[in-house]
């Protein structure tokens, strides 16, 4: 029974899974780029540098992605100004709305991971770099960021998997990614449990592959050697 269903709907499900991966990849890469300045500013010792990223992170971590998505997709569409702006061709499409919301959302989390990682760098190493005559900027680029990247990598891989799964919410703004596709198929064949199980296994395979990839990356970067001195 399950195999029949799987064979019959596999092409559609793969189509959905592809969209899921696209959404995830775009948002975690764009999110990381956005998060680097946020994370650095967030761990600054100056309160006025710290406060802006703090507010940003606070809002995006404090509210559900589902609500952020509804606000961007349905909420913005209510305003004439937005509908007549140059951005409307992008905001009109559910795909870009989802990517935008997921990027803004995940950047807040990644920035926090980066801050934690930067603060976890043993102060001695930074002092050593400064004592060797490195400038603040050089210390940041050559010592702090590579160190923080290794410390933060396990948490970042967690975040990527989280976003892979969070992309299932895009089904609520009409995108036919894996969950949306599955729900649409269920609307035709009513095989609720079997279809959700199949979708679950596909998600599992995708996250398994991602986790293995990150494990390889961790080994390559020798993350173990940097932790738990």
């Amino acid at each position: 029974m399950v195999w029949e269903l799987l064979l019959k709907w596999l092409p559609k499900l793969i189509q959905g899974a592809t969209l899921t991966l696209e959404l995830t990849a775009l948002s975690v890469i764009a999110g990381l780029i956005l998060a680097i300045p946020l994370g650095i500013a967030r761990s600054s010792k100056l309160w006025y540098v710290r406060s802006l990223p703090y507010g940003y992170i606070f809002f995006f971590r404090g509210t559900p992605l589902l609500i952020q998505l509804f606000l961007v997709y349905y909420g913005l569409g209510q305003f004439e100004v937005v509908r007549e702006s140059v951005l409307w061709p992008y905001l009109r499409s559910p795909f870009w709305c989802a990517v935008l919301t997921m990027t803004l959302h995940t950047a807040a989390y990644i920035a926090e991971i980066l801050r934690g990682a930067i603060q976890a760098i043993p102060p001695g190493e930074i002092e050593a770099a400064r004592a060797l005559g490195m400038s603040r900027f050089k210390t940041l680029v050559h010592i702090m960021l590579p160190r923080a990247a290794r410390i933060g990598l396990p948490a970042y891989s967690n975040e990527v998997i989280l976003m892979l799964k969070a992309s299932s919410l895009a089904s609520t703004v009409t995108l036919l990614e894996l969950t949306g596709m599955t729900r649409t198929i269920i609307a035709r064949n009513y095989q609720t449990v079997d279809m959700f199980l199949i979708a679950g296994v596909i998600y599992l395979v995708m996250s398994f592959v991602l986790i293995q990839g990150f494990k390889l990356l961790e080994r390559w970067l020798r993350v173990d050697a940097c932790q738990g001195r």
């Binding site: 349905y74 209510q78 509908r83 009109r92 559910p94 009409t174 036919l176």
Partner: peptide, 18 residues
């Protein structure tokens, strides 16, 4: 064809011009 979770959301998107 765009499929919505509720009929109301479809109406919202009709008024927003999507």
């Amino acid at each position: 064809i765009k499929l919505y979770d509720t009929q109301e959301n479809a109406y919202l998107d009709l008024t927003s011009g999507r």
